[in-house]
Design a protein around this nucleic acid. Structure first.
Lengths: 246, 246
DNA sequence: GACTTTTAATGACGTCGTGTCAATAATTGA
DNA sequence: TCAATTATTGACACGACGTCATTAAAAGTC
């Protein structure tokens, strides 16, 4: 039936629309400002209708976070698909992180909400699963690079370290620096001028420490990172225009 | 006057008491569960009295976070005072981080609230300053170690890197791994068994990468870390019994 | 000790937000 | 055309924050 599917489509549409309205509020005015009443009136629907789509406010926040994580995954995926040796691919992943937290800083900010237990615990296990899956895929993707590196003899993992534990280090240092840069109250006062450059250096040194082949200069490391940065920038812009939404 | 000071003391006491009641609620039942009404009734005071002490709920949370940060600083301070060469002192700091996030996991969890903009923005600038100061002192303390290392010729900082930027790397990797371990939904499913050991390895490799003298084996690195761990464990237990509160 | 002044404590109140649910409207199916 | 199903509505109950006029207690004064 045409009418049926039209109605159904309308309802599905609305879900997207709710998220589209919610995102800037959460971002620019904070969690408190995001209220179901307000969303409903912006949608020109009653509050009850909103609750047909999302059982609570928290679920909306996690839905937003999931959207953001999916964008992250696409960036990672594009990075992994670059035609390069394993060490360089890892730089591409690093570049993807930089893009994500710089160009898509809002997405990074929204993704952080999943770590708030108030929000995580109140939302449905279905959505929690989706988020877990998305995170797993991201990790798996990067672990593949490590795996290949080992197989190609470009890297020897230390005794007893899994590929996942290897990437955990890079994950932690990148993630940590991003959160600290975004939220640490005293960072600017304290002489940390260019956090990104510092982290690049640390990652470079870490790669050297593990003797990940091919060895390279820091200048080459930076140059390559910049190059991947640009390519991923283009890619992500195309992505956005294809989907007509960011 | 005796009576005056008794009253004044009573009021001061109450501030501590409020925090002592608030902490376990925030920790075990979450932010929602911490309500001014409830705190007031537990104190057997009216709500208004509570508001004489703290202008809002957020301020209570930041006050708790500050207490926790002060404990962290004490651990760092004890680590820095260990009689050891610079590289080993940095291990002691690493051990202090481990103690803080393992033995005092609740403090770590509470400290995280300062990164919530809802809470940060609503509380007084006086308290924000105190927190910034405490963080600065922590950073400064560790930066000193790097400084000394350079002065003693045990470390060459890469061109253009400040001591603060050097420690930023270690800070980020430790902090990042702690947050990820605590909150990342898919970590266990994904083959990251012993996050602490992995991070020790990464820090070790990083130190090697910078050729921080004296060079050492990973086994020595781990053994020394364990040793500092124990010493700081004892220290922190004494600290707690001295202050009759944790 | 009687008093005034200052300081502290109280809790009813206004306000706002969540989430529910019986009632109503719209859509579908027969 | 009408019954059955599905979607929408908004009044309502509830709970929390933060205020403030009112009341109580303590300090200061003679």
């Amino acid at each position: 039936m045409v009418t049926l599917s039209r109605k159904k489509r309308e309802i599905q549409e609305r879900e997207v629309q709710i998220l589209r309205l919610a995102r800037p509020i959460l971002l620019r005015e904070g969690y408190q400002a995001l209220s179901m009443e307000r969303l409903a009136s912006m949608m020109e629907y009653a509050k009850g209708t909103l609750y047909n789509h999302f059982p609570n406010k928290e679920e909306i926040v996690l839905a937003l976070a999931l959207e953001s994580m999916e964008l992250r995954f696409k960036l990672f995926d594009a990075a992994e698909k670059m035609d390069a040796v394993s060490r360089h691919k890892l730089l591409a992943i690093g570049a993807a992180c930089e893009i994500y937290t710089q160009k898509y800083a809002e997405h990074f900010a929204i993704e952080e909400w999943i770590r708030n237990s108030t929000i995580w615990d109140k939302s449905s296990s279905r959505r929690q699963d989706l988020i877990r899956q998305c995170e797993s895929r991201c990790i798996g993707l990067v672990a593949t690079i490590v795996h290949d590196a080992v197989n190609h003899g470009e890297l020897n993992l230390p005794e007893g370290m899994t590929p996942q534990e290897m990437i955990f280090g890079f994950w932690a240092i990148n993630y940590g620096s991003q959160v600290l840069s975004a939220t640490s109250p005293s960072l600017p006062d304290v002489g940390i001028v260019d956090a990104i450059k510092a982290i690049r250096r640390h990652c470079y040194t870490l790669l050297n420490g593990y003797e990940w082949k091919p060895s390279m200069t820091f200048e080459a490391h930076v140059a390559l990172t910049e190059q991947f940065n640009q390519r991923l920038d283009v890619f992500s812009t195309q992505l956005a225009s294809n989907e007509l939404r960011i």
